[in-house]
Simulated assay, not measured.
Amino acid sequence: MAVNTTASAVAGQPRHGTVSRCAPRRLAAGPTTAYTEVKALLRSGGAAGAPAAPRREAVAQEPLGSTKDHQGAVRVLPAHRKPSFPGR
């Protein structure tokens, strides 16, 4: 029996056309401040090299931990509720 391990199959999503229609809304509802930092880390990743990546990520995590996005997500985590992200 073949097992489909693509991201769409794991997420229970249809495979064709789903990303282009659903991803923008899901991304906009997510932790946009963290997404911005991830994009910056990815853009600068090649210049600093792989050995420097863990340190750059740790430095980026410190200010993100004090955002309202992070605080709200941590607050609802024990109750297994879906977090909301105000983008701050």
Rank of each mutant, 00 (worst) to 15 (best):
Y35K: 01
T32H: 01
R55G: 09
A73F: 07
S44M: 03
R25Y: 11
K82M: 09
Q71M: 15
V19T: 09
T33V: 12
E57L: 12
K68I: 05
G46Y: 07
L42G: 03
V3E: 15
Q71H: 12
E37Y: 01
L77N: 09
P51I: 07
A40M: 04
A29Q: 11
T36M: 05
V59N: 00
P86H: 04
G30A: 15
G12C: 04
Q61D: 09
A23I: 01
F85W: 09
T67G: 02
R81P: 00
R26P: 00
L27Q: 11
R55W: 05
A9G: 15
K82F: 02
S66L: 03
V10I: 15
G12D: 05
R21Q: 09
P83Q: 12
T36A: 15
A2M: 12
A58V: 06
E37N: 01
R25L: 13
A79V: 00
R25Q: 14
R25I: 08
K82S: 08
A73R: 07
P51W: 06
P63T: 08
A73T: 07
E57C: 08
R55A: 15
P86I: 05
K82I: 10
L42D: 05
V74L: 15
R43W: 05
A28E: 14
P54K: 09
R43S: 12
R26Y: 09
R56D: 11
N4T: 12
E37D: 04
F85P: 00
V59Y: 00
G45C: 11
H16L: 01
A73V: 05
L27V: 13
P78G: 10
T67I: 02
P51L: 06
S44P: 00
G72F: 02
G12N: 05
A53K: 04
G72K: 02
P54A: 10
G49K: 09
N4W: 11
E57I: 12
G12K: 04
P63N: 10
A52G: 07
A48L: 07
A50M: 13
T67Q: 03
L77K: 14
R25K: 14
T6L: 14
V76Q: 06
A28F: 05
Q61E: 10
L64D: 00
G30Y: 07
A60M: 05
E37V: 10
A34H: 12
R21E: 02
E37G: 01
R21L: 02
V19I: 10
R15F: 05
Y35P: 00
A2S: 13
A28I: 03
T33I: 02
A2N: 13
F85E: 01
S20K: 13
A58W: 08
P24A: 00
S8H: 15
P54W: 10
A50E: 14
P14G: 06
A47R: 12
R25V: 12
A2V: 14
R55T: 13
N4V: 12
T5M: 14
A52C: 08
P31F: 08
A47F: 03
A34V: 10
T33L: 03
H80Q: 08
P24W: 00
A47N: 07
